[in-house]
């Protein structure tokens, strides 16, 4: 089971919730105020963090996909 994280940067508002909930997976760019995806394919151990990061996004722009 591999997971893939995507962020709709167009719609990202820089709330920084993802970075606070899942600092291993997300960062934020102070200049643009947009999220940075650090890990595109999180490991099984990082699944809970990834789910928390996605759920906590007020702009609802983080998607988790199962890719096989």
């Amino acid at each position: 089971m591999t997971m893939k994280i995507t962020i709709d940067l167009e719609a990202c508002k820089g709330y920084a919730c993802c970075m606070m909930e899942a600092p291993d997976l997300f960062d934020i760019d102070d200049a643009t105020g947009k999220a940075i995806l650090l890990v595109e394919h999180p490991t099984e151990d990082q699944r809970e963090q990834a789910e928390r990061g996605a759920r906590s996004c007020p702009a609802n722009v983080i998607t988790l996909q199962q890719i096989g």
Partner: peptide
Amino acid sequence: VNAPRQLARYR
């Protein structure tokens, strides 16, 4: 304010 990266370390 307009300094989002600071949030994580202060949290």
